[in-house]
Design a protein around this nucleic acid. Structure first.
Length: 407
DNA sequence: GTCAATTCACATGAAAGAGACCACGGTCTAGTG
DNA sequence: CTAGACCGTGGTCTCTTTCATGTGAATTGACGA
């Protein structure tokens, strides 16, 4: 959030804002929710998905499909696109094909068995309370809801690895066997996963029925990302506002991060916003650097201010300890400082077991670097260091201190 | 010097509990005709 | 007689605790050269 630095009246600021011409034509083309009309560098995959799913148009149940690939390799967008096309055609020929897309990562929507089934049922117009019903009851409602008419349902489960990690693989077992319970309707599962190893850790029976077909999305290379960026930038920005080398730099950043196109698009969009706000009529390379820092800072600050108090306490303990002591830090030390901190703010401390998990989660979030090491005779522990840029540390401290009512 | 056993300081897993939230069905109450 | 208020029961969900088991290499100490 940039702060208004001048002392002119706020009204005229807004007026300026509305009159100021932005370098954007339409930002939506750079947002990750946008599905482009043509997808670059994914022809093979589109063709493969189309081949696999085509039988739905004859009302035959296609094989279940499992899609792998790292983040930002276009899995979601490609599946979206293909299933959209299918439902368009199906509509044209009046075939009862329905596509259900669900992102399992979204909290409070589809991160447990109950919620997943409830959410799908709601898509079919059944009202299901957010909690309170037995799970098999919800299944019954679900069966009734979809089995009432003859139809084929393409159930797309995005980030399915998250769901399994949190809720176990029983859901998948139930889902893969769902067709046995149905007389009219048929369900085809399309699983999308970021985690390439995930399928190896589930029950082999489920594995074989879920991944009747598999499809791997390779990362984009830098050139491909450039082309993608270019095609989106053409629509999103006014002509000529993107300086030489900007696209290339964005692509290079993203290619470094295993070819994550989403990241590249975010970077470009934020760079555009910054350029806009600075009143510079062009996006320069320096804006990309600023954008990268801003994205990271916003992400970190968001986590720090929204996560539960116990997480904040652990993080604050790490930051305190870091001042008096050289990194790396170890779990035991942090726990001691944490306990002291709890006493100070009169919060009952958690067990070390729990704190250990919290440290693991902070690591996953990328706020700290935690590596399990063995110090031989002196035990096994996590070696921990803070992994946020130094420039944001004072801000984090500020947020934590006010959130925890420390002085 | 070499080798296996020991040992530390946690990590990691599994299970179960606490407390918040919620639906459902039954009972009670007050208002209505 | 009926709509709504008010329980009790039984369910989910998240965060935790409890108990149990695992683990990797520095250290130790026995052994043989």
């Amino acid at each position: 959030m940039e702060i208004l630095m001048t002392d002119e009246p706020i009204g005229s600021y807004f007026e300026k804002f509305i009159n100021k011409d932005s370098i954007f034509v339409d930002k939506k083309y750079l947002q990750s929710t946008y599905t482009p009309t043509t997808i670059l560098h994914r022809d093979e995959q589109i063709k493969a998905i189309a081949d696999i799913l085509a039988p739905v148009l004859k009302l035959e149940r296609p094989s279940n499909l499992f899609v792998y690939g790292k983040t930002g390799t276009g899995k979601t967008v490609t599946v979206h696109y293909t299933t959209n096309e299918i439902s368009k055609v199906a509509q044209k020929y009046n075939k009862p094909v329905k596509v259900c897309y669900l992102n399992c990562k979204l909290k409070k929507i589809a991160d447990t068995e109950y919620r997943l089934i409830a959410h799908i049922s709601r898509m079919f117009g059944k009202a299901i309370p957010p909690t309170g019903l037995p799970t098999d009851e919800v299944y019954n409602i679900f069966y009734k809801a979809i089995d009432s008419t003859r139809q084929i349902i393409l159930l797309v489960l995005d980030e399915i690895d998250q769901l399994i990690k949190k809720a176990g693989d029983e859901i998948l077992y139930n889902l893969t066997r769902i067709n046995e319970q149905l007389t009219n309707a048929q369900v085809c599962l399309i699983g999308i996963s970021n985690d390439l190893l995930f399928i190896d850790n589930i029950d082999p029976r489920i594995k074989s029925s879920l991944s009747e077909e598999e499809l791997v999305f390779p990362p984009y290379n830098a050139i491909q990302i450039q082309e993608i960026l270019l095609s989106r930038a053409k629509k999103a920005f006014k002509p000529g506002v993107v300086a030489q080398g900007v696209i290339e730099k964005c692509a290079a950043y993203a290619a470094r991060e295993h070819g994550d196109a989403r990241r590249a698009l975010d970077l470009l969009r934020v760079a555009g916003e910054i350029a806009d706000r600075e009143g510079s009529g062009k996006i320069l390379i320096s804006h990309i650097d600023k954008a990268e820092r801003k994205i990271e800072r916003d992400r970190v600050l968001d986590i720090v201010s929204t996560y539960p108090r116990q997480f904040q306490l652990v993080l604050y303990a790490i930051m305190m300890l870091r001042k008096s002591q050289r990194e790396p830090l170890y779990t035991g030390e942090i726990y001691e400082v944490y306990k002291g901190l709890c006493k100070r703010v009169s919060v009952s401390p958690l067990t070390q077991r729990r704190v250990s998990d919290i440290l693991g989660e902070l690591d996953m979030l990328g706020l700290i670097n935690a590596k399990v090491i063995s110090k031989g005779r002196y035990g096994r522990t996590r070696e921990i260091s803070l992994s946020v840029p130094d420039s944001t540390i004072p801000k984090i401290e500020g947020i934590l201190e006010s959130a925890l009512h420390l002085s």
